[in-house]
């Protein structure tokens, strides 16, 4: 199983200290081995369409209407404003790109 843990960490944007790499790598492998149970399952004899999964369905008619929320003044409610962290002149401070 060619799991390159460092590549995976880069992909998931996770920093894992060098000394923990071996341990977490071992755990990943252990769980992936458990996942291999799926390989024993054959779908032969079963007809499964991609749309025949457990995904919910919703009629187009029941979707949200294109109406802006009432403004705070007219609704009389005060919506608590989220305090975004590290802002400058209303912008969120971000790292360099």
């Amino acid at each position: 199983m060619g799991t390159d843990i460092k590549k995976l960490c880069a992909l998931a944007k996770l920093e894992i200290p060098e000394q923990n790499i071996a341990e977490i790598s071992g755990k990943v492998k252990e769980v992936l081995l458990m996942f291999d149970k799926l390989d024993e399952f054959t779908t032969e004899g079963f007809e499964i369409k991609s749309t025949e999964d457990l995904k919910f369905e919703r009629a187009f008619e029941n979707l949200r209407d294109d109406r802006p929320r009432p403004t705070l003044e007219s609704s009389g409610k005060t919506r608590p404003k989220l305090k975004l962290k590290n802002t400058k002149d209303g912008y969120v401070l971000g790292p360099r790109i």
């Binding site: 960490c9 880069a10 998931a12 944007k13 996770l14 920093e15 894992i16 989220l82 975004l84 962290k85 590290n86 969120v92 401070l93 971000g94 790292p95 360099r96 790109i97």
Partner: peptide, 25 residues
């Protein structure tokens, strides 16, 4: 990713990849 909310800390001075990885540690 600790940009909009999360815990104390600022992205100032960071390159974004390293900020994300470090934040998420």
């Amino acid at each position: 990713d600790n940009l909009r909310y999360g815990y104390e800390g600022s992205p100032e001075g960071y390159e974004w990849n390293s900020y994300f990885s470090e934040s998420r540690s």
